[in-house]
Simulated assay, not measured.
Amino acid sequence: MADPSRLTGDPNSHDLSKFSTSLSSTCLCKSIRVTINDNELFTRPRGHLCHCANCRKVSGSYVSSNLAIEREKVVVDDPKGVMKKYIDWETNSGNKVERFFCGTCGNPIMSLPDVLPTLVIVKMGMFPRIPQPECESFALHRHPWQGKHEGLTQFEIVKGGKKLGE
């Protein structure tokens, strides 16, 4: 019988020390590999949980775990050329967001928003460990039944904007 922690993707089965300089994983079908090269991924809270409708749709869940990071720190390997792109104009800013996903298994990979030209937003659900997020964006769009993530700054809409309850 196979190890159940391996089959279910138990994040606790992955020692954080393995990710001291980089974090790498693949889409569900293993066609695309994404590597984040950063030695601070797990030294402090990073990334954010996004509750906007588009991120929810892309993640297939009530929230999307994202990491906005400098483009030069992310390597995407797509040897079979299966990565697809959807250009999303239905955004809060009115500017386009290029949303990339695996054309074989549908796994979301990353987004490139025009409003953040030096950053890539990596979709963290594909990784064995996810850094603790530092904030929530579009917190006004949370469902009333959701639990609260203690210690996270909640922005009403965009990160860096008005905080929830101000």
Rank of each mutant, 00 (worst) to 15 (best):
A68Q: 11
V58W: 05
K80I: 01
H48M: 07
D88F: 06
G147H: 08
R142T: 05
N54P: 00
G125R: 11
D114N: 11
D77W: 04
T43R: 14
N92G: 09
G60S: 11
S93Y: 03
E166F: 00
L152Y: 01
I109P: 00
G81Y: 04
S93L: 04
M124P: 00
T91N: 04
F19P: 07
K57R: 15
P144W: 12
S61P: 08
L116R: 06
T153F: 02
V97W: 00
S31A: 15
K18G: 06
P79Y: 10
P108W: 09
N107S: 15
H14K: 15
S111M: 13
K57L: 11
T118D: 15
S20R: 15
F138Q: 07
S65N: 08
S13F: 08
F100W: 05
V58N: 06
S20C: 11
Q146F: 15
K148I: 10
I87M: 13
N66S: 04
S17K: 13
C52H: 02
D114L: 11
Y62D: 12
K162D: 01
K148A: 06
G160Y: 13
N95K: 14
R56P: 03
S22T: 08
L16I: 15
T91G: 04
V75C: 10
L16S: 11
F100L: 05
V58Q: 10
F138N: 07
L119Y: 12
R99T: 06
V63F: 08
V82W: 03
S20K: 15
L116Q: 09
K162N: 02
R71I: 13
S137H: 11
T35N: 05
G106R: 12
I87G: 08
E40I: 10
N12T: 13
L152Q: 00
L16W: 08
C27D: 04
S13C: 10
P4N: 05
E90S: 14
T153A: 07
S25F: 09
G94K: 04
P144D: 13
N92P: 01
K18F: 07
A53W: 07
K159D: 13
E150G: 05
S31Y: 03
V63M: 11
S137I: 15
N54G: 11
N92E: 14
K57M: 10
G151W: 00
K163D: 03
M124V: 01
P11Q: 14
S93E: 05
I36C: 03
